[in-house]
Amino acid sequence: MEKKLEKQLSEEFKNMVDKNNPQSSIIKDCIFAFVIGGLICDVGQFFMNMFLSLGVPQENVGYYVATVMVFLGAFLTGLGIYDNVAKYAGAGTIVPITGFANSIVSPAMEFKREGYILGVGARMFIIAGPVLVYGISSSVIVGIIYYFIKYFAK
């Protein structure tokens, strides 16, 4: 009896979610993500060309561009522009480095009212923290595997 009621409630909940879930066009969403993500990359390319024309050495220009793009992502998040663009562009704004800046600044702004230590300091990496932990961990594992492959390939 209990399983039957649980199954019925589960189906009712699924129907309610399907009914209230906004329908989206996958093609339209992919096009927006592609275009906005491409525009973000174009901005990065613009800064890369600008820094190169100003005489920044080729091996250092990536650092400059990354710094500018993180600043722009954080600044636009602070103004509320980045999140509005992300509503339409989806993954087009999450994938570039500006998405990383957004994932740090958004929680910092949200928890600012809880104070700088327990709010901003404690919760700033709530979204980006797991990405950093697993990204760094997986890079270490890949590095170790690469080392052993190179070592035994001799």
Rank of each mutant, 00 (worst) to 15 (best):
V35N: 03
I126W: 01
F75K: 04
Y64E: 15
N60A: 10
S10H: 10
G129P: 04
Q45L: 09
I117S: 09
D18V: 05
Y88C: 01
A122S: 13
A101T: 02
K3N: 11
G62Q: 14
S53F: 04
G55R: 12
N84S: 06
V65R: 08
V35C: 08
T98A: 05
F100N: 00
F13N: 05
I145L: 12
I97L: 15
L9G: 03
F152S: 11
Y147S: 11
F47R: 04
Y82R: 00
D42A: 15
L132Q: 02
I97S: 07
E110R: 15
L79W: 14
C30H: 08
N15E: 11
G78C: 02
F13L: 10
V70N: 02
A153K: 09
L76I: 07
D29L: 05
V105P: 03
A101P: 00
F125H: 04
K154T: 05
I81Q: 09
V105E: 08
I136V: 15
E6C: 07
N60Q: 14
D18G: 09
M50R: 07
I144A: 12
G99T: 03
N102E: 09
L79R: 14
G143E: 13
V68S: 08
I97W: 07
A33L: 00
N20S: 13
G80P: 12
L118Y: 15
V61Q: 06
V65E: 10
N15C: 05
V68Y: 08
N49V: 06
F100E: 00
V56S: 05
N15A: 14
G78E: 02
G119A: 10
A89Q: 04
V68L: 09
T98Y: 01
T77Q: 08
G135Q: 08
N60L: 14
P130V: 04
N21P: 03
F71W: 11
V35T: 07
S106V: 05
G115H: 01
R123A: 07
M124K: 01
V61H: 08
V70I: 15
F13S: 09
Y146R: 10
K87N: 12
I126Q: 03
T93K: 04
S138R: 05
A101C: 02
N102Q: 12
V56D: 05
P107Q: 08
G115W: 01
S10M: 13
A86Y: 06
G37M: 06
I94D: 04
S103W: 03
G62F: 14
Q58V: 14
L132D: 01
G121S: 04
Y63K: 13
I26Q: 13
M48Q: 13
Y146P: 00
A91C: 06
Q23N: 11
M50S: 12
M109T: 10
G119T: 05
V120C: 03
P107D: 04
F47P: 01
S103H: 04
S106F: 06
L132I: 12
G90I: 03
I117C: 03
K19Y: 11
I126D: 03
K7C: 05
A33T: 00
N21K: 13
G80Y: 12
K14V: 08
G80M: 11
K112L: 13
I81N: 10
D29P: 01
V85Q: 02
L118Q: 14
K14N: 10
T98H: 02
N84Q: 12
L132G: 02
I104V: 14
S53T: 07
